[in-house]
Amino acid sequence: MHPFPRLTMRRALPGLLALLALAGAALADGGDRAARLPLLPKYQQECAACHIAYPPGMLPAASWQRTMSNLQRHYGTDASLDPATAQELTTWLAANAGTYKRVSGQPPEDRISRSAWFIRKHDEVAAATWKLPAVKSAANCSACHTQSDQGDFNERNIRIPR
């Protein structure tokens, strides 16, 4: 006897395909869901005044802790906060750190843009594109990731300026 009778296979096939599609969507979306963590309002208020609210999952906890303990010299600017606010944000960042894709090691200078996964994912972006006035810096996610301020880095929403 055939282990998979024809009739059974035909019945099972749509279900199998649906399952595969679901699994694919889940994989493709794996990082995005982590990035779309609802943001602490205070994080949004304090940190997204100068740059987008970077998803906490994109850095490991140790990197966030170092960043938060050095706000007075924050990538060339003074981003100092009162101690209570700094503590509240540090706790929340550490609790939600490191969930995005393959965030494992601490990147140089605790920069998301120097993480191995970040460099790999952006290897198709031309050097000239990074230098465009509308881009200027790898820290400027929203120059291309149009929904990044919502934590959405889906490829569908990428528009590279010319």
Partner: peptide, 14 residues
């Protein structure tokens, strides 16, 4: 120079 309009962060562009 005229802060009557929107500005742009000199390093992040925001």
């Amino acid at each position: 120079a005229a802060p009557t309009q929107a500005g742009k962060h000199a390093s992040t562009g925001k």
